[in-house]
Design a protein around this nucleic acid. Structure first.
Lengths: 236, 236
DNA sequence: CCTCTGTATCTTGTATGCATAATGATCTCC
DNA sequence: GGAGATCATTATGCATACAAGATACAGAGG
């Protein structure tokens, strides 16, 4: 055959998503994106009519989300979206810092020129958004950069754990009000992060990422303290 | 009333475990302890008769285990115990190393004298088992020490992630054949670990734990290579 | 008037039944 | 005789029905 076999590997796989898989994805998005507020009850019947499915796949989905730490299930009392406390956030950030630090070390060892170029491009886009004060876009690029560093580390286990934590933390939506000073500092930190990655200085990148996450934590916690905790913002 | 209300809060809560929770725990144990071998199929009907439950709670349990990474579910083809590849193990240990390193730092900052005494006692018991060449007991104490360091760190998120990874790694049952030389080295490393904890030298403890995990990884990987991978040891 | 208890209702937990896709065996064609 | 296709069997995916516990309301007692 003249056709290259690799063509077959590049075609989009036929996604035969079962209902429960689809429900897990949809519900997770709704929780992470804030559509389902922390503390909100998740009555099976209501969700069933909403998604047009029966209770069986829905319940399977809720169990999975519970094991991911996004919802809490009380026996005979149903599922609720978990409240993120300040203590939870304070716990999660050091762990994310450790994971990203490891990712930084591994990335410096494994990343190729194309990977660095990609992250550099994302970085410049992010800085452009910063100068235009486009917070949402800045935040999106910021997230992508961190994800790409994780990806460059080439460790699927590490990526999975980080993604899980990042999803939970993201619900705190701390980006809302960040001071101009902190924003400038964050961009400066990202400059140094990029420099360390380009120089493939693993130790330095690890330390930069750890500190970067620590500063992020301070912003989030200050923000939570300011509006009395994101958990309480349930007013429609 | 002369009775103190606090009396009521101290009684052990009645644990009303639902069937699916019980099934998750039982199946997880069976997988981690090796009763269910890697690659083994998990037919719903057979497990239902075995546990005396219907398919609904069993399926919910399998979904949870799948999200924990212990079983794999293929659409319309059922669940199987996941095969741990050498690459998976090589990925997991650096992550566990990073988590334990963080735990070491936090433990040094948070642990009290009682905690140190407890870990010291466990350490001496472990060393006694070493001198008597009681591998299983040694390994159990070893595991307890690492768990207690995690606990002393006082970070539930960190503990949960570590426990999840430790459970998956434990299935590789690397303790089987460890060289006398490596065993002696491991005990020596534990001596240093205890010393660093007692001195509350967080940086040093972190580095010791990271290296300790790295050495453990080498043993596991050598062991897997020796018998052609634990995954293949399906012969009853 | 307040509190406690009993009951009704609703939600969740579990079992069962039906629909559908995958596996394996048999038959046919080459 | 071997390879491929078709059909039967089996297991999974989903829906529904039944059981049991939790919540809320009402009534009785203090």
């Amino acid at each position: 055959m003249s056709e290259q076999p690799s063509d077959f590997t590049t075609v989009a796989p036929i996604t035969r998503r079962s209902l429960h898989d689809e429900l897990v994805a949809r519900l997770r998005d709704m929780i992470v994106e804030g559509e389902l507020r922390p503390g909100a009850r998740l009555p099976e019947k209501e969700l069933c009519t909403r998604f047009g499915v029966s209770r069986t796949p829905l319940r399977e989905a809720l169990k999975v989300l519970a094991s991911e730490g996004l919802v809490e299930i009380s026996p005979h009392r149903g599922a609720t979206v978990v409240q993120i406390s300040r203590a939870d956030i304070e716990e999660m950030f050091p762990v994310m810092g450790a994971l990203e630090a490891l990712a930084g070390e591994l990335a410096c060892a494994n990343v190729d020129a194309a990977g660095i170029a990609e992250i550099t491009a994302l970085h410049h886009q992010m800085v452009a958004h910063y100068h235009r004060k486009e917070l949402a876009d800045y935040f999106r690029l910021n997230q992508q950069i961190h994800e790409r560093i994780l990806e460059a580390a080439g460790n699927a286990t590490l990526s999975a754990l980080h993604r899980s934590l990042a999803g939970r933390v993201r619900r705190a939506r701390y980006m809302a009000n960040m001071s101009a000073q902190r924003w400038a500092q964050a961009v400066e930190e990202h400059e140094q992060i990029l420099a360390a990655l380009t120089a493939r200085d693993g130790k330095r990148l690890a330390e930069l990422l750890r500190r970067h996450l620590q500063h992020k934590a301070e912003v989030v916690i200050a923000n939570m303290a300011a509006d009395g905790g994101a958990a309480q913002s349930a007013a429609g």
